[in-house]
Design a protein around this nucleic acid. Sequence first.
RNA 1: GCCCCCGUAGCUCAGUGGAUAGAGCACUGGCCUCCGGAGCCAGUUGCACAGGUUCGAGUCCUGUCGGGGGUACCA
Length: 571
Amino acid sequence: MVRDDIQKTIANALASAQAAGRLPAFALPAIEILRPKQSEHGDYSSNVAMVAAAAARKAAAETGTAAIPPRVIAQAIADHIAADGPVGSVEVAGPGFINIRLADRWLQQQTVTIVQAGKQFGNIDRGRGQHWQVEFVSANPTGPIHYGGARNAVLGDAMANVLQAADYDVQREFYVNDAGTQFQLFAATLYARYLQLCGRDEPLPVDGYMGEYLIGYAQEVFAAEGARFLPLAREEAIAALKPLGKTIVLKALQEELAMLGVHFDRWFYEQSLYDDGLVDLVMSRLRQQGDLAERDGAVWFLASNYRPKEKDEVLIRSTGAPTYFASDIAYHYEKFVRRQFDHVVNVWSVDHQGHVPRMASVMQALGLDPSRLTILLYSLVKLIRDGQEVKLSKRKGALLSIGEVVEEVGADAVRFNLLSRAPESTIDFDLDLAKRQTDDNPVFYVQYSHARICSIVAKAAGAGLVAAESTTGDGQVDTTLLTHSSELDLIRKLLELEEQIELAVEKLSPHNLTYFALDLSRSFSGFYRDCRVVDEQNLPLSNARLLLCRAAQIGLKKTLALIGVSAPENM
RNA sequence: GCCCCCGUAGCUCAGUGGAUAGAGCACUGGCCUCCGGAGCCAGUUGCACAGGUUCGAGUCCUGUCGGGGGUACCA
């Protein structure tokens, strides 16, 4: 990464300035590299001199020598930086910033590097192949996912994309809660709908799922199995319906998520934790460790053993039925001990926040480093329609599902919109606005830019005026002709992609990439405005500019791919 | 009550402790002999409040006010 090279350059310069006697020997501070907001301050900037000055001032006070001003330190370091490779020029400015500008020649050459990298462009090696899991959505398998779940889906999916681009070996997992109360209720409701379908007068369970989609599910059951559940006793029938119902609902979930472009590597069943004895295994382990206690006829996990302020939690109800939390402990044991993930990211909505600190206790109880588990919390999406908040309740059937919203607004707009906010920020999503202003949505601006680049590339190739794809990037194109500030700015912007990916990984949020996509599109617009690409009077320049178009195309497509938005060639 | 998150432009939101705080939408005024006008250029308006830490605070700490969430033998 360019920034890392700049950092090394400055570290080396500081060391040589000390070796040359220009600066006294003081402990090397951490070298921070900043991106200045003003372009007059260069491409990269370091505050190392100001930090070092503070340290040197303390040392000077102790030894009674004179303090060195930050600007003097900065100048000494700057004098030991050679304009070479990416470094074009160095200057000291303001209170003691060292500002570095990238070399035009080096920037020009990057167009070739980008085109050669192709789909790999922007990738970084931060993860070094670490085995990571992103577990997300994990909605109850009881019907369509309400719209809030779309934020979970796109967040987890984009995060997995970004991690893969940063050289993490990522598995996407959906945890299917097929062992709990809600799934039992679902099956009971399905049974009632099935009976109704068969002409019986059967009420829906009191807390059952009222949505009419269950009628459709019952019809599917009947179509496949006929009336064979009718003679069975109620409990027997519900148990027999569970696997069928699960198949139907999971298929529906997959189809709905596919509408958003979200796919999973694995669907993990909660029930399997019981079937494989993992729940029993962790329960006996916790019991041996003294982490369990019986109170009021229930079995509790003593989270307070690990975190004094933490509340204890019920694992086995007084009815004898285990809670969700019991299998959740087994699940994390399975993830870390059995499957040996280096790191797991769970994407949860903020209403599960109370559960977060308890998971840290669980990790400790299992003898695992809690820092290997990250809970990515996102705030709720408030839907607005006709100026009113749309209230959702899955059980009552008053549901606006992901599928319905995607049909209404479009997958690309939904993804871009939901991904352009930081996870902790609540989103007011106005459906009417999103529909009415479809053409003004930022996502279309970005896609339009991409389509326009494709159009130019096609026109150039079709006209036969400029070098074909096969001859670009192998030294036949004179990139030094790219001297216009709009050309160089576009290259600069493209080169930011690596840093944007790193930032998204560090923050575990890809929202910066939506802003980068807009930035990049804007940079291309500037280039498009100022620099004509196809010009038969000047083939060498046309060749160079076409190469830059290809680089921009690659960069924009890659950015869109990371956030899961399509990059159309025409619109 | 206690815990977590948020408070930045008219609206919706960005903003790794750095130098002159940004974008989209909305609004106003310009730009079609020229590779896609779903575009381009220009203009207007802002860090909830009060202390503190720091060479430097929208960003960190404390408090106040306002909004959301959590605080179940639900998941």
